[in-house]
């Protein structure tokens, strides 16, 4: 599949999912928190407007799934932005300044890599009140290391490129070199990498939620829904299948989007 087509298809799919997740709940007569113990684990049906059925507390699964998608996407995007901001600044600084500063900064990254981060996140979750913000920050704090390394490597090689030498020779200021010659050539790789870290963040969030360390009831996320669904997988498979397949679809879309963007940027550099 060519880069452009894969971007168009996966991009519009993701957009559709996001819009439905935003608008869908309004169209439903139910809300995400109201329980109805008389109608638990109902099968999907159009008649009583439980499109995806109900869960083990009788809450409408459609509304809850839409909420889960919102939360999951929000967590993933915010976490990726956190890693983007820290990673790009850190990596570009290390790469451009170079020398000892670079060596020191990158040894710090190496050290942080050596720490078992998931374990730390779990500790954080246990130690502090479980709240949304902490999850964003924690996941972003894991992902920025990769971003920093990639950006630093790219900056290092860009700094040695001949067009940068030509600019130095002419007397272009360092600031202008960074913004006109280095930064634009980083955009491609950073955009691609962000689209690839989003699914990573989604997975981490799902993993934490699955362990019961993620978002708190009655709030929910796709990971938490899958966790809940597993318990009733035999009697009411839809409770698992619906959020699980949406999670898979979202991950797949982001991965394809990242691949497509990479092809797009590569083509511009090489063809």
């Amino acid at each position: 599949m060519s880069g452009n087509r894969s971007i168009r298809i996966t991009g519009s799919l993701l957009l559709t999912v996001a819009i439905v997740a935003l608008v869908g709940p309004w169209a439903s007569p139910y809300d995400y928190a109201t329980t109805n113990l008389e109608n638990i684990l109902a099968a999907p049906s159009l008649r009583d407007m439980h499109l995806f059925g109900t869960d083990d507390l009788g809450r409408d699964l459609f509304v809850r799934t839409m909420l889960g998608i919102r939360v999951t996407l929000l967590v993933a995007i915010v976490a990726s932005l956190v890693s983007l901001v820290i990673g790009v600044t850190y990596g570009a600084l290390a790469g451009f300044v170079g020398g000892r500063v670079d060596a020191a900064m990158m040894r710090l990254v190496d050290t942080l890599y050596a720490l078992p981060f998931i374990f730390f996140v779990i500790l954080l979750m246990v130690a502090f009140e479980r709240n949304f913000l902490l999850i964003f920050v924690a996941i972003g704090a894991i992902n920025w290391l990769d971003m920093a390394r990639i950006v630093r490597g790219q900056t290092l090689s860009l700094r040695e490129r001949e067009f940068v030498e030509a600019a130095r020779l002419t007397g272009v200021s360092t600031l202008r070199i960074v913004f006109r010659h280095i930064a634009p050539n980083l955009v491609g790789i950073v955009v691609v990498y962000v689209t690839l870290t989003i699914p990573q963040a989604i997975l981490v969030e799902s993993f934490l939620s699955y362990l019961g360390l993620g978002v708190q009831e009655p709030q929910t996320s796709l990971g938490a829904l899958v966790d809940a669904g597993v318990k009733h997988m035999e009697g009411a498979p839809w409770v698992l299948l619906v959020p699980a397949s949406l999670l898979a679809l979202t991950l797949l879309c982001f991965n394809f989007l990242g691949d497509g963007l990479r092809d797009l940027f590569d083509a511009r550099h090489t063809s």
Binding site: E162, F163, E165, A166, L169, G171, R180, P184, H269
Partner: peptide
């Protein structure tokens, strides 16, 4: 002096910023 001394590189592909 910087204005007066200029350089042309061997490989034009890497001497021109691909984004400009």
């Amino acid at each position: 002096a910087r204005r007066d001394l200029q350089l042309v590189f061997q490989d034009p592909a890497s001497a021109l910023n691909p984004q400009m």
